[in-house]
Nucleic acid binder design. Structure first.
Length: 550
DNA sequence: TATAGCAGCGCC
DNA sequence: AGGGCGCTGCTATA
């Protein structure tokens, strides 16, 4: 496959390297060049998709595939199957330090980036060699491709934006909070609730946003509350509880998804958050602007499809338990994972009495529960599913010992040693404290293997879906069905009404493709819950369950 | 005045 | 003694 690497050069020029051929073009000519070469379906190699792709999209150029060297470098540096020495060479220390380009400054060329004219072709050669000589080139190659495709999806979703009805959002806010207040003051609805709280607690000057003040006021009213979280306050028997909980709920809405948030993140009928593919250690995406990954259900009413368009919302039922079944090769759990409801499958198999017990036990195993009902279920299920439960148990033990663990496709976890090295205090000297650290880290590595492999399945899923969506329509990117939202195990596609059924089928087929890539031999189902809705808030309410043909 | 850490909440 | 994130205001620190 043709690889074409692009490197920024001084003076707004771009170095283009294809095989042995090198040329320099003006940045102004880049979009035209990429458009012309895209017909050969090359893999574009660049330092950071978030830097190169947005200007191309703005110029109307969509690319099919890329290799994101920044993501690749981060990944390969930690991958246990890689010989780290292979990644060392000219400029490699710069690649070690490369952070994500930020949303506020995604410009291809900035004034002070003279130190950053990294040769993409040199790093590309190192990464390719490192993968080829690794102990698992096929899986690592797949992971790099999937993660790079994810970076393309992220840029495209920010470009497209989530269709957003500002009028609906504003009405929601004013209904709950009253009219928009002047900068720096509370809306009327919150002020009224604050007054009720003050009067119930006999604390005239109380600022309910201040935890110390609130705790002191509660204590004066002879209420026992070790903290101010909602679940604690709910247990108190006092007339202040109702207005206080309401205050906290509405204050959170006001502060995180209120008018100021809208001013910053909504423009021209679109909500455009910024995504960071593989932004978390496990490979899950994070978001560093707009709060896309904690996008509350309450405000999803404002997400309404354009006229003549609709949303296809698809989410995977029990992604991580299914991933665990697949990666552990646990035959009994894999059997339960064939079908729409894995937990019910466990009940039908006679492993457990109720669906809820199944859920408690599996989640407890993946999170490291040791006590309570969940802990007891884990103990019982371990005998029934030795391979699956053994896999997460072994990951926990390895993490406690200070070893790295890896996902199915080869992403390596951080280690206990690293976390101690980062701490100026170093490793705890108190053996009691140290073993607590070890157990905490073990819970992290226990979850890492499952959450990380789940993220890999999801990357393969959206990468495949992205290609299917593109081939489904014609014309400009925004005229075809396109992804507008992705959240760990859920996607939202904005599509012309006429194509909604095709989009739903594509989501299901893509899930089957991802399962095949990761768990070829096992035939684990990854059933989707799919709804076609005008508003995101309605997703899941009238959803049809569609099982992929494995 | 700027910033780091904490508590609390939202999502998975 | 259940994992991963980001965002907010408050608080303490420099």
């Amino acid at each position: 496959m043709t690889r074409i690497s692009l490197s920024r050069q001084p003076g707004e020029r771009v170095l283009v390297v294809e095989g042995a051929e090198e040329r320099v073009i003006a940045a102004a000519d880049l979009a035209a060049y990429v458009r012309e070469r895209e017909v050969d379906r090359p893999r574009w190699v660049w330092d950071d998709t978030a830097r190169w792709y947005p200007p191309l999209l703005a110029a109307g150029v969509r690319v099919e595939r890329c290799h994101d060297l920044r993501l690749g470098h981060r990944l390969l540096r930690r991958a246990p199957a890689i010989d780290a020495a292979q990644l060392v060479g000219p400029q490699s220390e710069h690649w070690d330090r490369l952070g994500p380009s930020v949303e506020s400054d995604p410009a291809l060329f900035s004034i002070d980036d003279d130190a950053e004219h990294l040769r993409a072709d040199l790093e590309d050669t190192r990464q390719l060699a490192a993968v080829t000589s690794s102990t698992d080139p096929a899986r690592l190659g797949l992971l790099l491709a999937a993660e790079s495709a994810g970076a393309l999806v992220a840029a495209e979703m920010t470009f497209a934006g989530v269709p957003w009805r500002a009028d609906i959002h504003q009405r929601l806010l004013s209904d709950l909070l009253g009219p928009r207040p002047p900068l720096g003051s509370r809306p009327q609805g919150l002020e009224t609730l604050a007054d009720q709280v003050r009067s119930e607690l006999n604390a005239p000057g109380l600022n309910p946003d201040s935890h110390p003040e609130l705790l002191a006021a509660l204590r004066r009213a002879e209420l026992e509350a070790p903290d101010t979280r909602a679940s604690t306050l709910q247990r108190l028997d006092h007339p202040v509880v109702v207005p206080l909980l309401r205050y906290k709920q509405l204050a959170h809405l006001f502060q995180t998804n209120g008018w100021a948030w809208s001013d910053e993140w909504v423009r021209g009928g679109r909500f455009r958050p910024s995504y960071q593919p593989a932004g978390s250690a496990t490979g899950r995406w994070s978001s560093n602007g707009g709060g896309a990954l904690s996008f509350p259900a309450q405000v999803r009413h404002a997400v309404v499809a354009d006229e003549g368009w609709t949303f296809v919302v698809a989410d995977v039922a029990q992604l991580e338990p299914r991933v665990l079944a697949g990666m552990s090769g646990d035959r009994a759990l894999a059997r339960s994972a064939r079908g729409a409801d894995l937990y019910q499958g466990m009940v039908d198999d006679g492993a457990v009495a109720t669906r809820n017990d199944a859920k408690l036990g599996l989640l407890g195993a993946m999170y490291g529960a040791t006590s309570g009902e969940s802990g007891r279920m884990v103990a019982g299920l371990t005998r029934r599913y030795p391979a699956a439960f053994g896999l997460v148990e072994e990951a926990a033990r390895a993490g406690e010992r200070g070893e790295a663990v890896r996902t199915l496709l080869g992403r390596g976890s951080p280690t206990l040693g690293e976390s101690w090295a980062r701490d100026p205090e170093g490793p705890p000297t108190d053996p009691e404290v140290q073993s607590r650290h070890r157990r905490t880290f073990g819970r992290f590595t226990r979850n890492f293997v499952v959450q990380g492999t789940g993220a890999e399945w999801a990357s393969c899923w959206i990468a495949d879906l992205r290609n299917r969506l593109w081939s489904m329509g014609d014309g400009a990117f925004m005229a075809r069905p396109h992804l507008v939202f992705f959240l760990h195990d859920e996607v939202v596609v904005h599509t012309p009404l006429a194509l909604a059924d095709d989009v739903a089928a594509a989501a299901t087929e893509a899930a089957g493709a991802a399962s095949g890539l990761l768990f070829r031999t096992l035939g684990i189902d990854f059933p989707l819950t799919i709804s076609t809705v005008r508003s995101y808030a309605d997703a899941g309410k009238a959803g049809a369950v569609v099982s992929p043909d494995a």
